[in-house]
């Protein structure tokens, strides 16, 4: 019976080695999971370029970056105007079809009214110490937010890289955005 005992002891040593290997494997896996936890991600798809709609993505993005999150904003269609250095400083706003604004549609539709509405909103923003779109873009870039400009829209609107703020990433498409979204805890379409 002694041989039987020896073989059991041999198996025990093998089992212990296998267990140690398994523990090592699990520890590596746990370290990876923890590393992922440290880098929570948010992706925002910004599709609108009016003055009011430029704010939510930029405010949320800079705030999430302050929480230590990795943040990407993918700007597509009119959302691209937010990244356009010149256009971002005079984003439009219309009272037409906006029942929250105090101007009747018939007056709001007159020439020059959209510009006047945007100016009125800009003044309110400044009077209430709300940061400008330009300030929020600089703040976002400084906090490590990745601002991406959809290449298809750049071509569609006939823009080029020099039109955008320094630090804006160009040459990216839907697949890049989707890949980030798949890895992210929060995905928003604005």
């Amino acid at each position: 019976m002694s041989t039987g005992t020896q073989s059991t002891a041999g198996e025990t040593i093998e089992d212990a080695a296998a267990l140690e290997a398994r523990i090592e494997e699990l520890e590596t896996e746990l370290a990876e999971v923890k590393a992922d936890e440290d880098n929570q991600q948010m992706v925002i798809i910004a599709t609108k370029g009016t003055l009011d709609m430029a704010y939510p993505p930029l405010i949320l993005a800079s705030t999430a970056a302050a929480f230590g999150w990795d943040v990407t904003i993918f700007h597509t269609f009119w959302g691209l105007e937010i990244l356009h250095e010149e256009h971002s400083q005079e984003l439009g706003l219309s009272s037409v079809g906006n029942p929250n604004m105090p101007i009747p549609n018939v007056i709001a539709a007159l020439p020059g009214m959209d510009r006047a509405t945007a100016k009125m909103m800009e003044k309110r923003i400044a009077d209430n110490d709300v940061a400008s779109v330009e300030d929020l873009i600089e703040t976002s870039l400084d906090s490590g937010v990745e601002l991406q400009a959809c290449q298809m829209t750049i071509d569609l609107l006939d823009y080029n890289e020099a039109d955008f703020y320094d630090g804006v990433e160009v040459g990216v498409g839907a697949a890049t955005a989707f890949q980030r979204m798949a890895d992210a805890e929060i995905q928003l379409l604005v």
Binding site: I59, S62, T63, A65, A66, F67, N128, D129, V130, A131, L136, T139, D142, S143
Partner: peptide, 14 residues
């Protein structure tokens, strides 16, 4: 002082 959302949090983090 005088700054509004999101600046107090963003600058506190910095």
């Amino acid at each position: 002082q005088g700054e509004n959302c999101p600046m107090p949090v963003v600058k506190t983090k910095g």
